[in-house]
Design a protein around this nucleic acid. Structure first.
Lengths: 144, 144
DNA sequence: GAGAGAACTGATACTTAGTATCGATACGTC
DNA sequence: GACGTATCGATACTAAGTATCAGTTCTCTC
């Protein structure tokens, strides 16, 4: 089953209607390579209303079909999601996002809950840096 | 030396002028108990221009006098900063923020740099939950 | 198939957070 | 005092997202 089919199944199973607008947004989302803003989606689907785009993105985020990516400047982007809780490594040079397979702060959360006597039920974690490819390119450029 | 005096010294040492507006913003920042938005500062200093408030907060953030606090909904607040890189534990019930003494992801960053072959030079990390006080209050309320 | 009700739509106005611009003013230095 | 720079508040603007609303489409029931 293709990724699109699987998403469509999940949408239908949740009781949401599969409308033309939603399919258009879905297609735009799947056409994006890395992370993107709602404005990017709107640019790809100019016939879709602004409110509908935001509504649909919120729906997709709630269903864990897309996930939110927080950029270093604080702006919020989206990205087709692998399912389940995970974190991102974002290349500041090319914008490419890598998913971290598991949530690597679970141990930290447990330790903190005990030591700080907090009930921790959420966290934000994003890493920023430079991927291998961009680093090699920079090295080559610097050597010239 | 009081905290205010120390901040004033740092501002002067950086070559920034110590104007009435900046002192007013500083006073408003120090009067806030937890995290706050620029709008909160503006409410406390109604005579200060909007642009000036944003400018001054940016200056204070750059000088590490305040730090940015990312709320779970993605909105950006500020908070009088302990110096140096650190993270926050934010109580969703009362809004209180606790500072985590050290950056607890340094080891993670190092491991990731090696395993993912990334040069990691920044990260966002915030924890959300319920502090001890709020949890006790909830327990009492639930028992009644 | 008709009708009712819910889900969904795009248009639009609005809110919120932050930036850009600009002429006025204050300050430091000579 | 003159001059240059830093800073100011007012204001208009932008970007991102929400609220509202009348119209449309879908689904369900009869």
């Amino acid at each position: 089953m293709s990724q699109l089919q699987s998403i469509i199944q999940r949408l239908e199973a949740s009781g949401s209607r599969l409308t033309a607008s939603r399919l258009a947004v879905l297609a735009a989302v799947m056409a994006q390579k890395g992370h993107f803003s709602v404005e990017d989606v709107l640019r790809r689907c100019p016939s879709i209303g602004r409110a509908t785009a935001f509504r649909t993105m919120r729906l997709l985020a709630e269903m864990d079909i897309v996930c939110r990516v927080l950029l270093e400047d604080g702006s919020l982007h989206y990205r087709l999601s692998r399912r389940g809780h995970h974190h991102h490594l974002i290349c500041q040079a090319c914008g490419r996002v890598e998913d971290l397979d598991t949530c690597i702060v679970n141990d930290l959360v447990e330790g903190l809950s005990r030591s700080a006597d907090y009930e921790i039920d959420g966290h934000w974690l994003e890493f920023y840096g430079r991927c291998r490819t961009c680093r090699s390119v920079e090295k080559v450029a610097a050597a010239q």
